[in-house]
């Protein structure tokens, strides 16, 4: 057996396979299909300070080899998460990563502070693809100074590993990556969804109630892979790669482009066992190719 254990910015994972926030609920939803203990980590649904009902429906539309979603961060709030959804995960032997979102820089800090003093949460993933309410709703993740401010606010409030999740909806993702690493990020996750839309030509109206929505799934994979490649060259912190990964070959591409770990998102909807199939596929690849330690192939394409 090859050694698949990795260190994602201080978060030790027994293997590189984790779940993309928002596609895996709170983990237990997938327990009928997979052994959650085998996951390298579990990333739960995006959490905010107070509960949110999210956007009106339709919130989802299928597109060729992809899907659009505009869930709008429906979640039970951090207290709901801690009281209701964290306890069932405590018996599971995989680290839990909580994905956080805020309306303001201060909210991110408050969330980080709460998580810092909560046992049973191993790391924080910071979703910066949220509108900054104080700055006219421009996404934190599209302005380097705002992204850095959010990162600093989280960093100052926690000693746990901070993984900042980048938005692909920017001109130069390396600029964003550098800004958040300078502000104290231990690792970067990428990519979040690509902004898109769909129109119902019979009603002459957008399909999604919110008009715009985030594109994910196999359709975005080449874009995501390119961004992981670029960011790997630009910064020296480890990367959590995602975007359209649906099988082990996809995952290995991301690892070779520079990802230390990978997350499975939309693929959970086409195959609820996708995470396990991918993990087993990575194991088989390493065996077949004589890879003794997964670190041998991280960023292999650059060497």
């Amino acid at each position: 057996m090859s050694n698949l254990a990795v260190n994602l910015g201080g978060l030790l994972m027994k293997n590189p396979v984790t779940t993309a926030s928002g596609t895996f609920g709170f983990g237990v939803e997938f327990a009928p299909f997979i052994d959650l203990n085998r996951l390298g980590a579990i990333v739960v649904k995006g959490t905010t300070l107070t509960p949110r009902e999210g956007n009106p429906t339709p919130r989802m539309a299928e597109t060729p080899a992809g899907m659009l979603n505009a869930i709008g961060l429906q979640n039970p709030g951090i207290q709901g998460l801690l009281e209701e959804h964290l306890p069932p995960l405590q018996s599971i032997n995989s680290p839990v990563i909580v994905n956080i979102s805020g309306n303001t820089v201060e909210e991110y800090g408050q969330l980080a502070e709460i998580i810092d003093r909560t046992e049973g949460i191993a790391a924080i993933e910071v979703n910066i693809s949220c509108p900054n309410v104080k700055q006219g709703g421009i996404q934190f993740g599209t302005v380097p100074a705002s992204a850095a401010a959010v990162t600093r606010s989280v960093r100052e409030n926690t000693k746990k590993p901070v993984i900042v999740k980048l938005s692909p909806n920017v001109t130069d993702i390396t600029e964003m990556a550098k800004a958040v690493v300078d502000a104290g990020a231990d690792a970067l996750a990428l990519i979040n969804t690509l902004l898109g839309m769909a129109i119902d030509i019979r009603t002459r109206r957008p399909v999604i109630a919110n008009v715009f929505a985030g594109l994910s799934g196999p359709a975005v994979k080449p874009v995501a892979l390119r961004m992981v490649y670029q960011v790997y060259k630009a910064v020296s912190v480890p990367l959590l790669g995602m975007g359209g990964i649906s099988n082990a070959d996809d995952a290995i591409e991301f690892i070779m482009a520079g990802a230390t770990s990978i997350a499975v998102g939309t693929a959970n909807f086409t195959n609820p066992r996708a995470t396990m199939d991918i993990l087993e596929g990575i194991e088989a690849f390493c065996l077949r190719e004589g890879v003794r330690d997964i670190s041998e192939i991280i960023g292999a394409v650059h060497h």
Binding site: G22, T23, F24, G25, F26, E29, F30, K45, E53, G54, T57, P58, R59, M60, A61, M67, N69, I71, Q74, T266, N268, F269, P272
Partner: peptide, 29 residues
């Protein structure tokens, strides 16, 4: 009927409005 991805309660695509049980709220998803 609503549009669905997971069918498992994980993705939150498929919500409908129902009467809230908690006080001070008219509805919930």
């Amino acid at each position: 009927e609503e549009r669905m991805c997971c069918g498992l309660g994980a993705c939150l695509s498929c919500v409908c409005k129902t009467k809230a049980k908690a006080a001070g709220k008219a509805w919930t998803h």
